[in-house]
Amino acid sequence: MDYLNLGRSGLRVSRACLGTMNFGTGHGLAAGDEAEAGRVIDAFIEAGGNIIDTADLYHRGETEEIVGRAVRGRREQVILATKGAMPVGTEGRGLSRRHLTRALDASLRRLGTDYIDLYQCHQWDPATPIEETMATLDGFVRAGKVRYIGCSNFSATQIVEAQWAAARVGGTPFVSLQPQYSLVQRVIEAEILPACERHGMGTIVYGTLGGGVLTGRYRHGETPDPDSRMGRLLGHSMPGANRWAESLLNDRNLDIAGELVKVAAGLDAAPSEVALAWVARRPGVTTVLLGPRTAEQLRQNLAAFDLDLPQEALARLDEISAFDPGPMDGSFFHLTPRR
């Protein structure tokens, strides 16, 4: 496993980051199957991975509790990253001093630790002055509760505002951004990655398999298997689930996935391995967030970091995924680039 500094900081992270959104009742793992989550974390650490990303939002705090129990006794071996801003249970939301202070203390309790290595703002809060947010986060660092701070789903403008605000209040700047990035979602290349480079921020990229589209499971004219991720979303009662699945299964994305399958076949590799290997080699990417449900899926994902992509394969992947950036940012809520 290779390691890089996260942005302009001394924090060295593995090129693979373990995402934990699948750890919790009813999401990917069998209900209550904490043992499999533990096996995934064990396999990740054994493979040399050191950064584990979670959030208070995931399963209303259950995911943080699972992660905390899994790393108990080896806390110093891992970099724990979590996020705050979203509502958990009946709590409020946002990046105010009041909410973030309560959110951080709750995450510390659930994770069973007295400090967070990387505490991230889950999304921008237009209702709170960014100076208040950055001063609050700096207070966490000075109190020893947080080592480094970052953000997730910020636009380029929001990144700049936050870093300027940190300088104005004499506080700690962000060292990382967590944006969406894949062969079907390259919009961060236009403005967000340059903003990160200019302001000393590394990236923890997520959504690298395009919601599962880049696994090669979905094809034009075929109804997704009801047991697949897209099949479950299309049949889900959650507001917006159908629209999200349909936006991912658009003609452009399926065309890219079809070409990816051909490139992967020529390399005798799985499409998901090639998609992950492409992202890992992109300029500006520090670490790639993986979201396995099982230890076997994790091993398949990690194989991508040893996959050699020939120049012709890289050129073909760049060509098939070329995009018109348009007036968009790389947030979670912008799922497909404009055509």
Rank of each mutant, 00 (worst) to 15 (best):
96 S>K: 04
310 P>I: 04
216 G>I: 03
329 D>I: 05
313 A>E: 07
100 L>P: 01
220 H>V: 01
277 A>N: 01
311 Q>W: 08
200 G>L: 07
14 S>Y: 03
298 L>H: 01
45 I>A: 05
98 R>D: 11
336 T>I: 12
203 T>L: 03
5 N>P: 13
94 G>P: 00
132 E>V: 10
161 E>G: 08
113 T>W: 04
209 L>R: 07
57 L>G: 00
230 M>F: 14
271 P>K: 02
279 V>A: 08
216 G>D: 09
149 I>D: 00
306 D>M: 02
152 S>G: 08
3 Y>K: 02
80 L>G: 01
263 V>T: 11
142 R>L: 04
97 R>A: 12
272 S>C: 12
281 R>F: 03
294 T>S: 15
64 E>F: 06
31 A>S: 14
34 E>P: 00
321 S>L: 11
163 Q>H: 09
77 Q>V: 04
283 P>Q: 08
121 C>A: 15
114 D>G: 07
321 S>F: 02
173 P>Q: 05
95 L>I: 06
95 L>Q: 14
282 R>D: 04
177 L>I: 07
249 L>D: 08
245 A>Y: 02
185 Q>F: 10
236 H>M: 15
305 F>A: 12
193 L>V: 15
131 E>I: 01
339 R>K: 09
166 A>M: 11
158 Q>N: 10
222 E>Q: 15
138 D>E: 10
40 V>W: 03
167 A>W: 11
218 Y>R: 02
202 G>W: 00
4 L>A: 15
146 V>G: 07
178 Q>P: 01
306 D>T: 05
129 P>I: 06
333 F>C: 08
196 C>V: 04
32 G>W: 07
250 N>F: 12
327 P>A: 05
119 Y>T: 08
271 P>W: 00
86 M>G: 07
